[in-house]
Design a protein around this nucleic acid. Structure first.
Lengths: 155, 155
DNA sequence: AAAATTACCTGTATGATACAGCTATCTGGG
DNA sequence: CCCAGATAGCTGTATCATACAGGTAATTTT
């Protein structure tokens, strides 16, 4: 193995390490902030509402595919969200089997509150960072996610 | 709000979005690769073995504190790992209450295999990236994790 | 119009985790 | 030296997120 290959290997190992760590820390953070605004929405509820916000009303299968979740999981999450009045189910006019899920005003508001709390948290944590570094992090994370997503979908 | 503040806000929002997405994609990837080398170790087992590898034998409480997990969770994970012969429990000579957890050769080997598989995966996914970008990603993720960790511990 | 597919739901199982309570051990102030 | 309180680890129990398998109803294909 050449020196270059070795350096590349080391870097990939570091990325692997840091992503694994981030997963754990992210979990812990989500749980730790539970007493505050976060407990308002659990994990899946948040991502579902976010997705409905950016992508608009859609049916369960579309959500499941987009979020890499089993349909049954989304069904249950959606049921819980409906119980809490955060989403509404309406029959799909174009397909009698389908139900269209749409976020309610309350749901969007709740989601926005959690989002704001989290953004604030990142603001505090990254207060000492340069704007350039923050920007670069956002950009590289975005590209990493694209790569992960592409890989997940391909297989 | 000044233009600068606004830009900062936007960047933080992007980071929040991308981290949330990464959590979901990471989960999906972990599950999706389950048929291969990954199924050899479940999530917590991997991080425990990794930590034992880098930080050496230690007792349950130390592991729990380091990994931001409840002691009971670590106890159970460790029991499963012991059942599979991947770690060994020995009484702590310095403290009759404690048990020292150490990775076995089999455990380290298993962990290394998973690590290699994941590193390979990142290599494929990030094949088109420049070495500079990969390096920057590793560095910024590291700093992000430090920030998250500091925040978790403070509270 | 029968067959195949799709959408959603429900039953059931698994895994990771937390919290509360237990026992054994340790430690520091009288 | 001894007891009160702290600590280490374990076990019981609960919750949550998720998957897979199977069911029903509606749709699409042939």
């Amino acid at each position: 193995m050449s020196d270059d290959d070795h350096a590349k290997e080391v870097t990939l190992g570091r990325i692997e390490t840091e992503v694994a760590l981030l997963m754990r820390l992210g979990e812990a953070t989500r749980r730790g902030t539970g007493t505050m605004e976060h407990r308002l929405l659990d994990r899946a509820a948040y991502v579902i509402l976010r997705h409905l916000d950016v992508a608009g009303p859609q049916n369960v299968s579309a959500l499941a595919a987009r979020l890499n979740l089993d349909g049954s999981t989304v069904t249950r999450q959606v049921s819980a969200l409906q119980r809490d009045g955060l989403i509404a189910r309406t029959p799909d006019p174009a397909d009698g089997r389908g139900t269209v899920i749409s976020a309610t005003a309350a749901g969007l508001q709740r989601m926005a509150a959690v989002q704001a709390a989290r953004t604030r948290l990142y603001g505090e944590m990254l207060a000492s960072w340069s704007e350039t570094d923050r920007d670069t992090l956002a950009e590289l994370l975005h590209r990493l996610n694209e790569a992960l997503d592409a890989r997940n979908r391909r297989r």
